[in-house]
Design a protein around this nucleic acid. Structure first.
Lengths: 214, 214
DNA sequence: CCTCGATTGCGCAATTTTTCGCAAATGTAG
DNA sequence: CTACATTTGCGAAAAATTGCGCAATCGAGG
């Protein structure tokens, strides 16, 4: 009965939400799928179809009320509450993740940090103290953690992911360059700039060099 | 005549290449689409179909020669040569990008870094000195840059991207939370952990809390 | 109250992507 | 040399996703 909503649709909703938030800050009250689409580089039809999975939010002849739609999307995506995350791996990358200011304002709170290396264990970063990854199970036993961020070397990543899953984490943001194995009830999103670069080079390579933009 | 190759296929090739590189390091000589698929979580049929866009690399009854296929993929993707990149924006994030050790070994060299902030201009990072973004056009005028990495605040990003494009860059790795506007001959890949998190929460939200893994 | 330009929601068609199924080929073992 | 267990490559079917077309609706302006 509750028709299946495609993953691709879910992936686009946060993009819409971000654009709407920006419009809202600019004081815009309404926006059409046409205009939103032009701004985001997607077709108006796609936006309307995507939204139609969840309800009827627009008004014919007018478009969408920015505040209203933004709120709906937040609710749909579960962005109307806080999410608790832990970071595993506090090297260069993990450090950057921990100091990144973009998570907290969106309701994503990092509440623990773990590492295997004695030289960073005990170190204070922001208001967290890095704990030994060996003691992760115990440290997480009492609390509810929604999301695990994996920023370890590739060799350690699968092991860490297994431990996170056993600790009840149901979503993983994986910065390690591996294809993670997880049970079906766990979501994984990979962040891998190298893969992104490596697919773009395919197109660069085949472009005839230096052709001036038309 | 040269049938169009879907973007999704190109996006998967680097994943295959990485898995093959790993198998090669482990000393494996051949691998079947079955095994490779199991390792990566994709169907064997998909791997075979993807590869079939580019040629016939396997042997019936045996599978694929690991070294051979890896080399072919490198050639297809243009990974058999160096790519020159610049970083714009040397804040927390840009700094992490500059110090990240994962680009160079794959042939992605960062050859310039720019920022708008006087407090970082002139600073030395690795063997680069941060130059003023205002002088980017001149600095890039002589050289050929393949890829621009944008790690500026959102407000500056589009402007920076325009400048990169005018300087001849044909691919952009965009860390800024905006939907970039570029001419059709320019490729963009976005890296945005917040969007990834925001789509995962949709599934977390609707999961009934604490259901034990089956 | 009527007309008009704009815009949604949605059924349906078109397109894209994935999966299936199997003939042909390969290597091994007897 | 034959039988057999594998596994590829690829055409064709199936599934997923996107885009089209248009009736219904809305608000503005007479």
């Amino acid at each position: 009965m509750p028709i299946e909503i495609p993953d691709v649709v879910i992936d686009r909703l946060p993009v819409y939400a971000r654009a709407l938030a920006s419009l809202d800050r600019q004081g815009r009250d309404v926006v059409s799928s046409q205009e939103l689409g032009a701004q985001l580089g997607v077709t108006p039809a796609q936006i309307r179809k995507d939204l139609s999975y969840f309800g009827r939010f627009g008004k014919q002849g007018r478009g969408y009320n920015v505040k209203r739609l933004l709120e709906e999307l937040h609710q749909i995506l579960g962005l109307d509450r806080k999410w608790r995350m832990v970071v595993v791996g506090v090297g260069q990358l993990g450090h950057a993740v921990l100091s990144y200011g973009g998570f907290a304002p969106q309701g994503f709170d990092i509440v623990e940090a773990f590492d295997a290396d004695a030289s960073v264990i005990g170190k204070q970063i922001g208001d967290l103290v890095v704990k030994p990854v060996a003691a992760m199970r115990e440290a997480l036993a009492g609390q509810h953690i929604d999301i695990g961020i994996v920023a370890t070397p590739a060799a350690a990543a699968q092991q860490v992911i297994d431990a996170l899953v056993e600790s009840g984490v149901r979503a993983i943001l994986n910065y390690a360059p591996i294809a993670a194995h997880v049970p079906r009830h766990v979501r994984v999103k990979d962040i891998d700039p190298v893969l992104s670069l490596q697919s773009m080079t395919f197109y660069l390579k085949s472009d005839l060099a230096h052709s001036p933009p038309k």
